[in-house]
Design a protein around this nucleic acid. Structure first.
Lengths: 349, 349
DNA sequence: GTGAAAGCGCTAACAG
DNA sequence: CTGTTAGCGCTTTCAC
């Protein structure tokens, strides 16, 4: 049996390689890690010994001895929609060029689970950590500090942040979007937001919409703001609630594209056509946004560039950090067809 | 500075805990791992020492000493669409109940990169590995055997498989779908498939469609079969190619939902309405499928159940494996609106 | 340029 | 029920 084979022949160790190459383990280690200098001829002997034996270093042993793991961790809220997929992909690509592995954990938008995952990743000796947004208990940051874990906050940006962050201005982006919606003549505007508690991005997006509306003397009445989890079904349910009142909104601003696509479907089911009867806009510009009909007007977020920047930051030697780890990307509104001019009938209504 | 703090106070070790609790390291280890028996009073002392110190075990050390890591790895083709997301999520949930971490790596549908990732995961000492589909070089399986790595193939099923697999019958599912399409009167049928080379699932889906058509005396002409990568854009491009011939198909069977949604958009751009002028069906039943308009008729695949089964299999003690790791899930066709009866005008055409 | 040897933090026999 | 102790495989001074 193959299994027994393997049990009898445990994987080769550094020592096996050293013996075969006729050198010491220190030399093999030096070859493998590019530390110190080794004569060419010696290096070749070592390399062929490695190849012949099919040697792979033992990760745990290496981690124990060197106190590094070649691993970066990230905790994202969810993998179930594509919001973070491109960012992750870009991050992973950049990291793997330097032979570092990205460990992805998900929290399901739960602070407790996020903390668990952070602990798990730190316990695994990640050399760096990426977290989404700022909204978390101070204990989390204390823990990270006490363990001296390098980390960066992604997807959010605060100029005065105490911690490095690479993101964008969620509030501003939402404000711009609301301005754009109002520029189309909309006055009765509703919002379907993500759960704002503990989620600074969702919170900022609501605040942005509020601020923009305030500038025009409008406000977001409580019944015009629905908070729900980011899912198609919730978006669909939310919009039907918004439409079931005497004077329904002519435009709905959604906290992300998933909600917006759900809303699109809800509107369709309610017999409204978008954007003639109702405008719907999203946020994030995931692929889904341009796949649906009508295609979604949304806020384009530079996922890949953020992912790459995050990787580069976490890869950079910690002693040359400086202010480097603080970057605000620009977002822009992508006009597609789901936003139209306000229908005056309804506006009057 | 916090960083210096941490450098001066290195993380507590098992020994620190032992000292503080007034016991030996062995006892602390026993408490932490639930191995052996410990008096309640002792356990409590240990537990409070752990809490006070904020102790977290060192992963590498543990891996080195015990030769286990509490880690299961999986290599999936991509995270950029939701095909594997629910399966992963379910797997992760099941594993984390047993304090096992899931390490996710992506291959981008490249065999070389898949092998790299497998090596990386094995080097990290994963206790088990999940792979998608069977299509890979024999060397990969040899490597796994030589390292005695427990693994399971997912998303595919072969009754006579040499290796444990938990999946479904891709060929059969595609066949059923083709039958269903033909039952609506379609005779001119085209297919937009994923790249079949090295991808047994894509291959089986094409084979299934072929077989079903053959039963009715039809065949899939070369120009009626387009292979492309799984992306919205490719699906869109493919359908416009299919529609640009004298006698275009009345139905297009797609290798997955992403392609189908792309095709939907392509058809729309070509001025065709679905399903009146053209029927389009997908495969996988990801959320996207029911979010678009018209909603996609597709093959429902029990992603979550597969993920859970995979986790359970990999979690089970290897000595009681037996035939347990071989399971074929049923799929079913979800009728939505993108499949309609064949338009006789076009059929004649 | 290379080797010897001391750990890294933890687990698992083995004693007691 | 608990303590002692010998490694696990690798990196990293420190000599030579």
């Amino acid at each position: 049996m193959k299994n027994d084979d393997a049990r009898r022949n445990p994987p080769p160790t550094l020592e096996d390689v050293a013996r075969r190459a006729g050198v010491s383990t220190a030399t093999v280690s030096r070859c493998l890690n590019g530390t110190g200098t080794v004569r060419d001829e010696t290096r070749e002997r070592v390399e062929s010994a490695v190849a012949e034996l099919g040697y792979t270093p033992h990760f745990g042993a290496r981690a124990l001895a060197s106190n590094r793991t070649g691993t970066i961790g990230i905790v994202i809220p969810t993998m179930e929609n594509a919001i973070f997929a491109h960012g992750l992909q870009a991050m992973e690509e950049t990291l793997s060029k330097q032979d570092v592995t990205l460990l992805v954990a998900t929290s399901g938008y739960s602070p407790e689970r996020e903390m668990e995952k952070i602990r798990a990743l730190v316990a695994r000796g990640v050399d760096g950590l990426a977290l989404i947004g700022f909204g978390r208990q101070p204990e989390v940051y204390d823990f990270l500090a006490s363990r001296a874990v390098r980390f960066v906050v992604l997807w959010s940006y605060r100029a005065d942040s105490e911690w490095p962050c690479i993101g964008f201005d969620n509030r501003r982006a939402a404000m711009d979007m609301a301005d754009r919606v109002m520029a189309e003549g909309h006055r009765k505007i509703a919002m379907i937001a993500g759960m704002t508690v503990g989620n600074d991005r969702a919170t900022a997006r609501v605040a942005g919409v509020r601020a923009a509306m305030a500038k025009q003397g409008l406000d977001l009445a409580p019944e015009q703001l629905i908070e729900c989890q980011y899912s198609l079904a919730k978006g669909e349910a939310a919009v039907s609630r918004l439409l079931s009142v005497p004077k329904p909104p002519t435009a709905v601003i959604c906290g992300n594209d998933v909600l917006a696509v759900g809303a699109l479907r809800g509107a369709r089911l309610a017999g409204m056509s978008v954007p003639q009867d109702l405008s719907i806009v999203g946020f994030d510009d995931i692929e889904l946004a341009s796949a649906v009909d009508p295609a979604l007007t949304t806020v384009h977020v530079p996922h890949r560039r953020m992912g790459r920047a995050a990787a580069r930051f976490l890869l950079s030697p910690s002693d040359e950090t400086g202010e480097a780890g603080n970057f605000c990307f620009e977002t822009e509104i992508v006009m597609r067809s789901s936003l139209g001019v306000a229908n005056s009938d309804l506006r009057r209504g």
